[in-house]
């Protein structure tokens, strides 16, 4: 092969590698540093703590999450609470495991709700958008 041509190809390769490394580093930084990632984790942790608290209340209870949740989707099952941004791939969803007492049920799916309420009635905990006069 013509060595001069190979040298030019290597130069192009070097430029492409530099650009690629820059892009990858920027993507990683953007992914981790975006406030939405931190918000998602904080939301999932807060809801996990709220669910444990509601579970530990004798009798019925209704509690509203006191922040804006309108950018997120939520899935509550008896074993987990999941928070994610609409359209994002599943590996980026934030999931927190729950251990409810035997016989307890937890359910609810919300898509970008204006507000979020957790309600415990007997042994069932439901997650729903708050009504205007709730809680």
């Amino acid at each position: 092969m013509n060595t001069k041509a190979v040298s030019v190809l290597l130069l192009i390769f070097e430029v492409m590698v530099v650009l690629l490394v820059g892009y990858i580093a920027f993507s990683i930084a953007q992914g981790y540093a975006s406030s939405e990632t931190v918000q998602k984790i904080n939301l999932a942790e807060d809801l996990r703590l709220m669910l444990h608290t509601v579970t530990g209340v004798p009798g019925d209870a209704l509690v509203q999450y006191p922040h804006d949740v309108s950018h997120f989707n939520f899935i509550l099952t008896p074993n987990s609470i999941t928070v994610f941004i609409p359209g994002e791939p599943e590996p980026n969803w934030v999931l927190r495991t729950l251990y409810l007492p035997v016989g307890y049920a937890a359910e609810g799916t919300l898509e970008q709700p204006a507000s979020l309420c957790l309600e415990k009635k007997a042994k069932t905990i439901t997650m729903h958008a708050c009504a205007e006069n709730q809680p």
């Binding site: 444990h52 608290t53 530990g56 209340v57 004798p58 251990y99 007492p101 035997v102 307890y104 042994k123």
Partner: peptide, 18 residues
């Protein structure tokens, strides 16, 4: 905090020891 909230149930609901 996590442990405290989780432990609330032990002394509060009949499915535990209340």
């Amino acid at each position: 905090i996590s442990a405290e909230l989780l432990a609330l149930r032990f002394t509060a609901i009949p499915e535990c020891f209340a």
